[in-house]
């Protein structure tokens, strides 16, 4: 089950941008010896996943890679390499391999929590004491109408934490959208300008994953009404409006779901049709007149002889 925990760690990772340390790769030889057989030369993939790929390396931080290397992925047939698990590698050697992978792919390492890799310089923690952090987040529109998110990271004693990477993300029905990362400044503020303006209020999360001597923290915020609201007429240019229930919908019996026709053309059209049909009506009245006249004529013919005899 421990690989699941690896998975959890991976799950926490959020993209961040930070130059990699291109240390000399003592891990290169180790990788070639222990890993390349399955993962391919330079981790390009083979029987096992391409762990040298950008996709993998951006999605996993050093701690996760180290742990996966040490503990193995038993379910997938990957052995545990850590000495403590009966493997062949020391923790330092594993760290070397991880460093090699990073350097290899020239990719970025998300903020490490426990990885024995070249550590994130924790400038804020002059004292080596472990400290918990907390975060708050605010929002305000800027002059361009863009929403500016400010996440403030501080220790529990109220002192700001600077130089740390805060990742912003947005939860939606269809998953979480990464908004990017920002470093905290001297006041502990990480600032992110949202270029997108989603039209419906939704939740923004700022996450700090922690550092060597800092605990992780996160904050969430319901985005205020955006600058651009949905206008009803904007929904679709055909002007079709249909509200439906949450239940699957059957078209209402005998009713129109599509929009009503535009008023003025309809009126004109109706007027023309009505005009034609009323003229028909007038002509029919002439026909009725002919019939009446014929009836009167007949009556005269029938009555006339009687009148004469009387």
């Amino acid at each position: 089950m421990r690989w699941m925990i690896v998975v959890f760690l991976m799950a926490l990772v959020i993209l961040s941008v930070q130059p990699a340390r291109a240390d000399d790769p003592p891990g290169a030889k180790l990788f070639a010896t222990y890993c390349a057989a399955c993962h391919g030369a330079a981790g390009k993939g083979g029987a096992a996943p391409a762990i040298g790929s950008d996709a993998y390396l951006t999605a996993n931080d050093n701690a996760a890679i180290a742990q996966a290397t040490g503990d193995g992925v038993v379910a997938k047939g990957m052995p545990a390499w850590s000495k403590s698990k009966g493997g062949a590698l020391t923790d330092d050697q594993i760290a070397d391999i991880v460093a090699y992978l990073r350097a290899l792919a020239q990719t970025t390492a998300p903020g490490p929590a426990v990885a024995p890799t070249p550590a994130q310089p924790a400038r804020s923690s002059a004292n080596a004491e472990y400290a918990q952090t907390r975060m708050t987040m605010t929002q305000s529109p800027n002059a361009d109408g863009e929403m500016v998110l400010v996440a403030t990271l501080e220790k529990f004693d109220g002192s700001p934490v600077s130089g740390m990477v805060v990742a912003f993300s947005r939860a939606t029905t269809f998953g979480t959208v990464d908004l990017g990362t920002a470093k905290t400044d001297s006041r502990g503020n990480a600032t992110l300008v949202m270029r997108e303006q989603p039209e419906r209020a939704r939740y923004i999360t700022a996450t700090f994953k922690g550092a060597k001597t800092l605990g992780s923290s996160a904050a969430m915020l319901a985005l205020e009404k955006p600058a651009v609201a949905i206008s009803a007429g904007d929904l679709n240019t055909a002007g079709v409006r249909l509200s439906i229930d949450e239940e699957p919908l059957l078209a209402p019996e005998g009713s129109l779901i599509t929009p009503n026709p535009p008023l003025l053309p309809t009126l004109l059209f109706g007027l023309v049709v009505l005009g034609v049909w009323s003229t028909y009506g007038y002509v029919v009245s002439q026909v009725v007149g002919i019939w009446k006249s014929g009836r009167d004529h007949q009556r005269e013919n029938v009555l006339a002889p009687k009148a004469r005899s009387a």
Partner: peptide, 20 residues
């Protein structure tokens, strides 16, 4: 034939209807 007798009124109405 609607009791057509060809009297003046009928002719008038008919011609009017046809013309319209």
């Amino acid at each position: 034939s609607l009791g057509w007798r060809g009297n003046a009124e009928q002719k008038h109405r008919l011609e009017k209807g046809v013309a319209i």
